Simulated scan of single mutants.
Amino acid sequence: MRAFLLREYGGTPELDVIDEPLPGPGQVLAEVLAAGVNPVDLAIADGQLGTAHPLPRVLGNEAVVLLGDRVGYSQRTSGSFADRTLVDPAGVLDVPSALDPTAVFAAGISGQPAWIPLETTAALRPGETVLVLGATGAAGQVAVQAARLLGAGRVVAAAGHRPTLTALLDRGADEVVVLGGPDDAAALLEATRGGADVVYDPLWGAPFSAALRATRPGGRTVTVGRSAGEHVAAIPVFDFLGRTMLSYRNGGASPDVVARAFGRMLRHVAAGELVVDTSVFPLSAAADAWAHQKSVPHGKVVLGTA
C-alpha cells in the first residue's frame, strides 16, 4: 500500500509503497477515506514529540475510515497518511455515510479544541461577548462559529490575515480585528465594546497579553496552544486580578465529552452551519499537502484517497 513515510526525525517524509500493517490486540485494518494533516504531525517529524516511536513510521493521527459498511472517524490512528491504517473499533465515532469525508475534520482534532473549551471549560453563557484569537486557523474558524452556535451575544474574531478574517463576518463574527497594530489591546477593547466575557486563545504570548487587557472583570480566558511561537506571556498582576485563566489540551477531555462534542459539531457540519476552509490533496500529492501545512495555512489540510 502507499504510505507517507518518515525515515528520520528532522527529515521530510516521502511517499512510498510498504506492506500493510498487522493488527495488534484490539485493532483492525481500515480503509482510509480521508486523513487530516495537523501541526502535531510537523512537530513529530521535527523530533519534538513521540521520538520513542521506532522509525520508519507512517505519519498521521486522524482519519475518516471505512470498516466494512461503517463509516467512522478516529483520532487515535497510528499512521493515517496511507491507503489503510490500524484503528481500535471501540474508539471510532460514527459518521453519516452521505457526508463528505473531508468535511468531517471540522469536528475532529481542529474542531474539538475550539468547541469543548468554549462549551465545557469556559462554560460559555448565552449573550456573552466572546473574543477569538487566531481566528483564521482551522480551530479559530471553528471557535468563531461555535461561539455563535452556543449562544454568544457578540463574537469578535482577531488574527493577522485580513482576507480570512473578513470571510468570518459571514460565519458568525460581528467584528474583526487585524492583530499587529500599534495598540492591539485598545483595538480589542473597542471591538468587544468594553471587554470580552470569554477569550479563546490558541496563540499565547503578546496577543494573549493584549486580549487579557481587553477582558471584562470577572471574565474567563481559555488557552489551548501557543501558535504565536512564544513560550512566555507577560502578564501584569493587575491585568490578571479579577479574571480567571483556564486551559485545555486535546486528549484531556473524557471520551464521553469528546463524543458529545463531536456529535453536536457533526450535526452542524451536515446542516452547513459549521464550515472550515479546507485544502484537499490526494495521497499521491502528500508532499504538496505537507508543504502547504508547513506554510501555516488559514484553514484545514486534508489528504484524500486518490
Rank of each mutant, 00 (worst) to 15 (best):
D184N: 12
R260Q: 14
D46H: 04
F208H: 08
T12N: 06
E128M: 09
V269W: 01
R213K: 14
R193Y: 02
G11S: 09
L99G: 12
G111Y: 02
A107R: 01
G205L: 09
A30S: 07
A167T: 12
L124I: 11
M245T: 04
S295H: 05
S97A: 15
D256C: 01
G134D: 07
G11L: 05
R226K: 03
L246C: 05
E273H: 14
D83K: 05
E273N: 14
T221V: 14
G108N: 07
G68R: 09
V275Y: 02
S295P: 00
G47N: 13
A173V: 04
A152D: 12
D16F: 04
V155W: 10
R2W: 11
M245E: 04
L59S: 00
A233D: 09
R171T: 03
L33R: 14
G180V: 02
A167I: 01
T129V: 14
T221E: 12
T166G: 07
A107K: 08
R226C: 03
T85N: 11
A234D: 14
A90I: 02
L188C: 06
T51S: 10
I235A: 10
E31G: 10
P101E: 09
L303Y: 10
L67V: 12
A114G: 12
I18L: 14
H298N: 14
P282S: 09
A173I: 04
A185H: 10
V198W: 06
T215M: 15
R162Y: 01
P202V: 01
G263R: 04
P25I: 09
A259L: 08
A90M: 05
R76C: 03
A211E: 11
L93C: 04
E128Y: 10
E230F: 08
A291P: 02
L274P: 10
A135N: 12
D170N: 12
A159R: 00
P21E: 08
A107T: 11
M245V: 14
P282D: 07
G137N: 01
L133F: 04
A43Q: 13
D256N: 03
P89M: 13
Q293N: 12
T120W: 03
T136Q: 11
G108C: 11
T85I: 02
I109M: 13
A206W: 04
T102V: 12
A211G: 04
T12H: 05
V28E: 15
L86Q: 06
H268L: 06
V280W: 10
Q75A: 06
G79M: 00
P96T: 10
